[in-house]
Amino acid sequence: MKSPIIEAKNINFDYEGRSILNDASLEIYPGDFMAIIGPNGSGKSTLMKICTGLMKPRQGSVTLFGKDINKFKEWGRIGYIPQKATSFNQGFPATVEEVVKANLYSRVGLMGRVNKQHIEKVQEVLDLVGMLDFKDRLIGRLSGGQQQRVFIAKALVSSPEILFMDEPTTGIDANSEKDFYALMDDLNKEQNITIVMVTHDIGAVSKNISRVICLSRGKAHEHGCGVDMAGLNELYGHDVAPLIHNH
């Protein structure tokens, strides 16, 4: 039996007097390809931010790789791509390489110097996401799908064991979305990276995911594998027709 790499227990979180998470618990195991779904405002992004230390719960505990989150220091083991990753200042004058290099912090530390090996690692992850040819381009000049790949490369440069993504396909076109899920599948199966994503696009992701967590009324409920959609209509309160992109 594998032990969880991330464990959130009995999480309570309030926002402006309203309970968002109410005794929600979540366990993430190595190799998982997990989708967290649920209606707007159900606390999906909040739970993800609590698991990555970006928000603190009112009550409850989070353990990362066996350590209490308050004592955890190895942040390079965790990659996170926020919901608005591609809604940054599009005029920011940084190249693709500069953006990815910025996340070398966990490898080189405060005031540490970037050496040849680090640059090679940057090139390796850019190659992995198919963006090496764009390394000298300004990040703001790329399409939404290309920018998303750069942010994945940025997260990968610290060699994370788990990658959190908050609605990663928002604002990218259907073709880029298909490529994106193919890349996620590759990272999960070939690179052994555990993947957790908050998404509304359960149809597109369902072919690849191993676990579905639904957030409803402040609690996390586990569903079977992605192709089992039973119960989603009840959860959303209306008919849910998953869209599978095969083109």
Binding site: T52, G53, L54, K73, W75, G76, I78, Y80, P82, A85, F88, F92, A94, E98, V99, K101, A102, N103, L104, Y105, S106, V108, L110, M111, V114, K154, S158
Partner: peptide, 23 residues
């Protein structure tokens, strides 16, 4: 010069910089 990469990261994405462990 010493804090170039940290300051660049904060300017570009403060939340991401915090998650990377940058103070």
């Amino acid at each position: 010069l010493l804090l170039y990469k940290e300051l660049l990261y904060i300017a570009f994405d403060e939340e991401g910089a915090a998650l990377a462990g940058i103070p």
